[in-house]
Amino acid sequence: MRIRFRFAKTGKVRFTSHRDVARLWERALRRAELPVASTQGFSPRPKVHFGLALPTGHESLGEYLDVDLREPECASVDPAELPQLLTPLLPAGLTVEAAALVDRPGPSLQEAVTSCSWRIEVPGADLAELTAAVERLLAAPEAWVTRERKGRPVTDDIRPAVAMLAIAGSLPPDRLEPGVVLEAELATQPRGVRPSELLAALEPPHQEGRVCRTHQWIALDGARREPLPAPTTWAPHAQARAS
């Protein structure tokens, strides 16, 4: 039996790595004494499947995790109770928003997700200048960026990956300097484009401040939906826990 969790990663805990979060989950699942299935063999590992890695330092309101439970012990597990059970067993800022049974034959989270929505803070940016830069990028047929891959520079066109890009407003007043907030939807196939690459592709290039992944999207029968919808109450709850 597979259970899918949706969780948020906000506040100080955003500085943990993808690997750190995996280990935090493994410990929390053990503390909750859930009957997590294990791999066979010499060194058994819990059967836990993570979605797309979130860059260290970025926040998220939509992270996912699939956990396989052992038959028949899993019969006593009620997914609806799991968010309340697990959130206190995770560090402050990792908040379990929802849990539900999933059909086993689906593709893995990594394969299923086709794009992510981002909220990108650009400290120090001027609203008019950035608005113009965004318009230029959207009007351009291509947008080349150079990144380092295995120690070598690789240049490619990220314009096809930019599904949406818009100005969302000004930075919240508690930030050290004023600036602008962008909203973007970036494709994850064939490779995940990072918000920093998007800002590097702007003319002139910009540097990101705080970044939050607000949604991950999967395509199903031509429609776009989230791997697990968030309960309607999530936003204020997650924000309150953010430090």
Binding site: K12, F15, S17, G57, A92, L176, G209
Partner: peptide, 23 residues
Amino acid sequence: IWPQLEPILPKVARPARYIGLED
């Protein structure tokens, strides 16, 4: 000094060293 530290941490290696929050 967290508000001053926060914008620096993305620039350093293994920033989780500096956040506390341990159980």
